[in-house]
């Protein structure tokens, strides 16, 4: 029911608020509500009933003459935009998920590539050294293969960025629904990933206090290796889940406010509008610059116990800039 109401609101959102338009909206709502209720009483599922009502709604163009809104209706019809079907969207989401998995795997391989070397560090035999080097090269090579090959599959979907595309209302609704369903998984994976990265020093700290030795492996070997593995798994989770999550937004951003399907993204997370292009550029590189400054000063002076003060200062400056540069 909510969906039907949203649909009607979106259809009418670009129309002027004249008495004729309001009356048409109310009458159409009455008919849609009646039809929905009757379908539901016949035992038809909510989804199906919503689908039937929306597919039998018709086209607002038909009303344009009666409502004196002809100019508005024709004006807002998007020009030659490519319609992306639900099936295409599903394929795209699937492709993005497998693409994300491959890239995340590549990153994981890069991070764990030195563990062969760290594990055998300090061993006198040259066989072990060769093993470490081989492991590194194989990992990096595999990662490069993944990085180079996987984007090729995604080229099929370049049109999403290059052409004006629209998705219809039910597709938008489906994707938004999928995104909502993915949200808990996204939050969980992201949290675990970040926690793993933070905790990567933990095994080293614990092992150091235990002071044990496993055969020829020293504590340094094990703790160094564990650090890489922790970070690798953490980063893998973060990369994978962020890529999947962003694929929903890519599709949802296709529509803008003037299209019938409605734009779920821009109303929920309105993009920040700055007073000028320069201001937008400054704001987009702000945090990277701060990080650079922080790291440079810290490494030059080695006063890590003092340099953290940059962060609170930076965030205060950010807040001030944000309020002055925003429209």
């Amino acid at each position: 029911m909510e969906t039907i109401r949203n649909y009607l609101e979106t259809m009418f959102s670009s129309l002027p608020h004249t008495p004729e338009v309001l009356r048409a909206k109310n009458e159409l709502w009455q008919m849609m509500e009646d039809k929905y209720n009757e379908l539901r009483n016949e035992g038809i599922s909510d989804n199906e009933a919503v689908g039937t009502v929306i597919s039998e709604f018709g086209n607002l163009d038909e009303l344009s003459e009666d409502l004196g809104i002809h100019s508005v209706v024709t004006h807002t019809t998007p020009i030659n935009s490519r319609k992306v079907s639900l099936e295409e969207c599903k394929q795209y989401l699937k492709a993005r998920a497998s693409f994300g998995f491959k890239i995340a795997l590549g990153v994981l391989l890069c991070i764990i590539s030195p563990i062969g070397a760290t594990l055998t560090d300090g061993f006198s035999s040259s066989i072990y050294e060769a093993f470490g080097a081989c492991f590194l090269i194989i990992c990096v090579a595999a990662a490069v293969v993944l990085f180079v090959s996987s984007p090729i599959i995604m080229h099929r979907y370049d049109f999403l960025k290059q052409e004006p595309c629209t998705i219809d209302f039910s597709t938008t609704h489906y994707i938004n629904d999928q995104k909502e369903r993915y949200r808990p998984t996204y939050a969980l994976l992201l949290t675990i990933g970040i926690v793993l990265c933070i905790l990567s020093f933990l095994p080293a700290a614990i092992l150091d206090t235990l002071n044990l030795k496993l055969g020829r492996l020293s504590i340094d070997n094990i703790s160094g290796t564990l650090l890489f593995i922790f970070v690798a798994i953490g980063v893998f989770m973060i990369v994978l889940t962020s890529m999947i999550n962003s694929s929903y937004d890519t599709l949802l951003k296709l529509n803008d406010a003037t299209t019938v399907g409605g734009n779920f993204v821009s109303t929920q997370h309105p993009e920040k509008q700055y007073i000028s292009k320069t201001a937008a550029t400054i704001m987009s590189v702000y945090w990277t610059t701060v990080t650079c400054i922080y790291l440079s000063i810290s490494f030059l002076t080695f006063d890590w116990h003092l340099t953290w003060i940059i962060w609170p200062i930076a965030s205060v400056i950010h807040a001030v800039l944000n309020s002055t540069l925003k429209k």
Binding site: E27, L28, M31, F57, G58, E62, D66
Partner: peptide, 29 residues
């Protein structure tokens, strides 16, 4: 009223013709 008419049209034509809501409203006005 609106929905009753659209339902009757659907029934009388054995679902061969389903009138769209916008078409019906446009005819009314």
């Amino acid at each position: 009223y609106g929905y009753e008419i659209s339902k009757q049209i659907k029934q009388l034509t054995q679902e061969k013709y389903i009138i769209k809501e916008t078409t019906l409203y446009s005819a009314f006005t």
